[in-house]
């Protein structure tokens, strides 16, 4: 039978499903919630005591000891920056703060006062090549004046790890705010809907997951106003500004949630033509929706 557990973590709604007859299903699902809490405590940039915040606070001061979790996610982020030619860049923190995303989005929505930092003009962010990670020694060094944000890729990575752990006990599905990973399937694939970004009561498609993942990036989700200008959280490192590409929402099917998250963001920043080519090069399937609602697909996106 199917067991479900819902909770909040990483400032988003998380859900996990486990298909098993074991009486320990509830215990396994509780472990997922604890795992999300532990990772968030280490990787959140909004928590001053997190490992990531301590690393950012030590920018410019050489190698700092970091936890294995931070080392692993930082390694994935730097690899994503490399394969995308820097279009995915974890060192966009300053640009995000300049744009006004300097608190958790829940606080922004609640209208809490901004600490008014980062008022300087946005500048291109391309600091990922200066970040030094020594996984063997468990240290990382962030150049002065830079900061790291692992938001999206950290969420995808956590979803992947949680699904793998849960998948030991039976077919499992984990949804972290739209980053969704399946580990096995209970006789038939898990059907997952792709929400219409312009009408949340409708779905654009239903994809079937077994041992793969789906994630969506959109400029429609986390939006706010700053100095009368509409802003969103998808910063283009090439300009240091929120994306101005022709794409509104991108959904990607990939082997892992972290991969899907990275490709979705890069495709959105690159725009439809170049972005779809990038997805195909990674052998990922993609559904693109433009600001005008126009849809297009690439890779093996199901018809």
């Amino acid at each position: 039978m199917l067991h479900e557990h819902r909770f909040r973590a990483m400032n988003t709604a998380v859900a996990a499903w486990l298909w098993t007859d074991s009486p320990l299903a509830g215990v396994r699902l509780d472990e997922v919630e604890r795992f999300f809490a532990q990772v968030e405590a280490e990787l959140s940039r909004f928590r001053p005591q997190s490992g990531l915040s301590r690393l950012n606070a030590a920018a410019g001061r050489g190698p700092q000891p970091i936890s294995p979790v931070l080392a692993e996610v930082l390694a994935e982020a730097l690899e994503a920056a490399r394969v995308s030619g820097g279009v995915f860049d974890p060192t966009v923190l300053n640009a995000l703060q300049t744009a006004g995303y300097d608190r958790s989005f829940e606080q922004i929505e609640a209208g809490r006062a901004s600490p008014q930092r980062g008022q300087s003009a946005a500048a291109p962010a391309s600091g990922w090549q200066q970040v030094r990670l020594d996984a063997a020694k468990g240290t990382a060094a962030v150049p002065g004046g830079q900061g790291i944000d692992l938001g999206g890729i950290a969420k995808g990575w956590t979803v992947d790890q949680a699904a793998r752990q849960l998948g030991q006990w039976g077919p499992a599905l984990v949804d972290g705010g739209g980053d969704i990973r399946a580990a096995g399937a209970p006789g038939e694939p898990w059907p997952v809907a792709v929400q219409d970004p312009f009408d949340e009561t409708r779905d654009l498609a239903v994809v079937l997951l077994a041992d793969n993942a789906v994630a969506t990036s959109s400029v429609g989700g986390r939006r706010w106003q700053r100095n009368g200008q509409p802003m969103h959280h998808l910063i283009d490192p090439r300009t240091g500004q929120p994306s101005r590409s022709d794409l509104h929402t991108v959904t990607v099917l990939a082997p892992t949630a972290a991969d899907a998250e990275v490709t979705a963001k890069v495709v959105l920043l690159l725009g439809r033509h170049e972005g779809q080519r990038f997805a195909e090069q990674r052998d990922h399937s993609v559904l693109c929706v433009g600001h005008d609602g126009q849809q297009s697909t690439a890779g093996h996106w199901p018809a």
């Binding site: 988003t12 499903w17 059907p191 997952v192 809907a193 969506t216 959109s218 959904t251």
Partner: peptide, 14 residues
Amino acid sequence: RPLFQQPVTRTRGS
């Protein structure tokens, strides 16, 4: 009957 009568969850912009 199929196991799932409707999608289990939805992906949405994040």
